[in-house]
């Protein structure tokens, strides 16, 4: 698992690559929490290179969404592969977190 952070005019884009499972989800959470500073206007998680995520990883996405929600900062996801999209659908998270096809769509909505 690797997370690349990029700042697009106050919108934090977190590009997640590889696998997020029960063995590295705490590290995943630390990296995301550490990158979300007070000045962040919105967060976009680009999951285009995410090959695998289990409930341990979804738990982190939910925690981050809750933290940001309390600060009125929006979060969205983009570029999910088919299997990753199904996991988000089965969890019902697709009904509580915005999912876009591309990073450009997510940034346009977040801007």
């Amino acid at each position: 698992m690797n997370v690349q952070m990029e700042n697009h005019e106050g919108v934090l884009v977190a590009r997640v690559e590889g696998r997020v499972d029960s063995s590295n989800s705490q590290d995943f959470e630390r990296q995301l929490q550490g990158a979300i500073g007070d000045e962040v206007k919105a967060v976009v998680m680009d999951l285009g290179q995410l090959a695998y995520i289990s409930s341990a990883g979804l738990r982190v996405v939910l925690l981050i969404a809750k933290t940001l929600g309390q600060r009125n900062v929006s979060i969205s996801l983009c570029a999910l592969s088919d299997p990753v999209q199904s996991v988000f659908e089965i969890s019902g998270f697709n009904r509580i977190i915005q999912i876009y096809d591309t990073q450009a769509d997510a940034l346009a909505a977040a801007g």
């Binding site: 289990s54 341990a56 979804l58 929600g69 019902g92 009904r95 509580i96």
Partner: peptide
């Protein structure tokens, strides 16, 4: 069906 702030953390693994 719970909203973000009401959704419990966890409980998803067995559901999957």
């Amino acid at each position: 069906d719970a909203a973000v702030q009401d959704r419990e953390i966890g409980g998803l693994g067995v559901h999957f």
